[in-house]
Write a protein that binds this DNA or RNA. Structure first.
Lengths: 224, 224
DNA sequence: TAGCTGATTCGATATCCATCGAAATATGAA
DNA sequence: TTCATATTTCGATGGATATCGAATCAGCTA
């Protein structure tokens, strides 16, 4: 496996189109990137694999979904400096590094929370002995049954759903497990109900309200 | 003629090798760049033409020689930012913009002076009516004959040389004419003799001594 | 279990272009 | 002029790779 030539990767318009689509710090699935670059899914997959290998992109796997994002601010800077000398008009929306930082803190992964907040929450729930990790799933303990109930989450109802109940999902930015599945989705929904967090539509960004910060600290010892 | 793809230009190792050789702000002839990149002169010529067209390089023509150099600091910056994300070790000798500035001020063009000092000198010599521009050459006036002699330059001797006497050479950084040919070379040699300027061997950089600065101002009204 | 969707792998094809030999050009030197 | 040197142009070739169809894989749902 040779060292991939980073310069050559940036030379192909299709790959550059994909990178452009991610320059604002967002994370998009392969199909969307294929569409934006105007190529077939196979071709997009091929290019994305190369960009991953060269560490220009990273992929965040959540359940069966995969979101691609720019690997680091350095990549954005390099592309921007290339735009300068290529005589292209600079990007209107420059990459917002602080936004990327916010995404690392709290974002959605499909329909549940991800990021530092989700990893911290999974840690706290295990520490409080509400859940335990067993293989690729979490199990809710006896203590957890009543505690989740008191939090306003109807576990028996969730179990009736035909989806994985409490899936362990590996976080990209933290590289540690957080809570997915029906329970993860219910937690996000309940947090929104209580106005602990607010989810922007059409975006994966999640804002933590001051009330949410207080409650997370008081109830779970989470200080983000 | 399509717009050349700057990214594609940087993707080829041969072209990158040439750019690397010029990253320190130096200017080299095509043959030297071909040698450093390990390709034939034809191939080098082809690549250099593309780099010129894309405004990544500029060429400085002096008599029959052509020196290629990086077109602007932005190019150096872009290449350096690419090195960051390509995982290459950074260049030991990073491009020194202040050095590039010094080159713009005073450098050699083959065997005579170029840069701001040379352009200013040509201007001053015309203003003092020592020389006049005629087509592609300068002519020494009657007043110039004695003045150059007093400066320690033997014009009759220079005229015996089998080379162009006082060629007009267009300066890259200034885009204006300066003095080349036998007279230009003699002036540089005389300036070195009088320790007005010092030429580093194996380099095109020329240092102007404080004595030189004084004399240039006193005798020619040149204030660099 | 089968079914669905998103994504990847494999194989074949077509296109792009870096390279160099040969020849031409440019420019100054003898 | 004639020669010499540096560079460029032209043409042909070979290698690299972007692309997509078809098949396969991965993960969840019913």
């Amino acid at each position: 496996m040779d060292r991939p030539n980073t310069m050559a990767l940036l030379a192909v318009p299709t790959r550059m189109a994909m990178l452009f689509a991610l320059m604002d710090g967002s994370a998009l699935p392969a199909s969307e990137l294929a569409h934006r670059a105007g190529v077939s899914p196979q071709t997009a997959s091929h290019h994305l694999a190369l960009l991953i290998e060269a560490h220009l992109l990273v992929v965040e796997r959540c359940l069966r979904y995969r979101y691609y994002r720019i690997a680091s601010p350095a990549v954005v800077e390099a592309i921007e400096s290339l735009l300068v000398i290529s005589g292209q008009p600079a990007l209107k929306e420059r990459a917002d590094h602080s936004q990327l930082e916010r995404l690392r803190l709290a974002r959605t992964c499909y329909d549940h929370l991800a990021g530092r907040i989700a990893v911290s929450l999974a840690d706290a729930l295990q520490k409080k002995d509400w859940i335990v990790l067993e293989g690729r799933d979490f199990q809710v303990t006896e203590r957890g049954e009543s505690a989740f109930n008191k939090l306003g989450i109807d576990l028996p109802m969730l179990r009736k759903q035909q989806r994985l109940f409490a899936r362990r999902c590996i976080d990209w930015s933290e590289r540690r497990p957080h809570l997915g599945g029906a329970l993860g989705a219910a937690l996000l929904a309940r947090f929104q109900e209580m106005d602990w967090v607010r989810k922007k539509t059409g975006d994966r960004q999640v804002h933590i309200s001051s009330k949410g910060q207080q409650e997370l600290w008081k109830r779970f010892g989470i200080d983000l």
